[in-house]
Design a protein around this nucleic acid. Structure first.
Lengths: 118, 118
DNA sequence: CATGACGTATACTGTTTAGTATACAGCCAT
DNA sequence: ATGGCTGTATACTAAACAGTATACGTCATG
């Protein structure tokens, strides 16, 4: 149940670094808007994952899906939370119901709703 | 966008108090396992809502749905979070898709999944 | 061979979270 | 008129969160 946020971040950043010098710890930190030492500590998991806002800026810079990066940090993005909090009973039921549903079932529901026949 | 957790708690507790003396601030606090002064402050919104664990104990004592009480505090319960975090992309899509769906549509999805024709 | 750029070690900080502990004033019944 | 129960005021706290600021040793290179 560990949080491999740091490892994942480092791997992703280093992969991009191979093709683009803008992804050194220092440059990446500057682009994200934090100190290089902080990036270093986060990647080595000397400290926990950053705040939601910082993770979202990181996702932009890394061209990553913010929901995925947030998930690695154990967080659910604020906009999703708002949706759930407005109708907690319905969404709680739904999510628990879907807990063990296979991926294709979820995808089917997503498509059904998108192509909305309500 | 305020958080009426305190108001709600007070109203609920006082309603129960009318029928059962176990719901004074002091007795309720003792049952939940916190100090009376803390309950008082929470109810008057002098401080923010309690931790998830404390809210869940409150919900038990009040015979309330914990998801609802947590929602009033702006929190999503840990078990729900885990479900989302395991498949962030799928659940993020799904939840955003369902954001503006009417209640009856959500209920339909819940039923469809429960009666599982996957 | 020194001058940058690199990642990291070290020390420190303000803010938020989630409460505790104690004391106090008002009321009500005996 | 006092003992006991109310709710609340006041002061304090330990731990976690989310970083900053600076200095250091290493390496490559021009």
């Amino acid at each position: 149940m560990s949080e491999p946020f740091g490892q994942y971040l480092r791997q992703k950043r280093e992969t991009l670094l191979k093709q683009d010098r803008a992804y050194t710890v220092r440059k990446f930190a500057a682009t994200v808007g934090v100190q290089p030492s902080y990036i270093s500590k986060v990647e080595r998991e000397e400290v926990g994952p950053p705040s939601e806002a910082t993770i979202i800026r990181m996702a932009e810079v890394l061209h990553e899906d913010p929901d995925v990066l947030l998930a690695l940090a154990g967080k659910v993005s604020a906009d999703l939370r708002q949706v759930i909090l407005k109708r907690p009973r319905l969404f709680a039921d739904l999510i628990r119901q879907l807990k063990d549903a296979p991926d294709h079932a979820l995808l089917r529901v997503v498509r059904e709703v998108r192509d909305g026949q309500w």
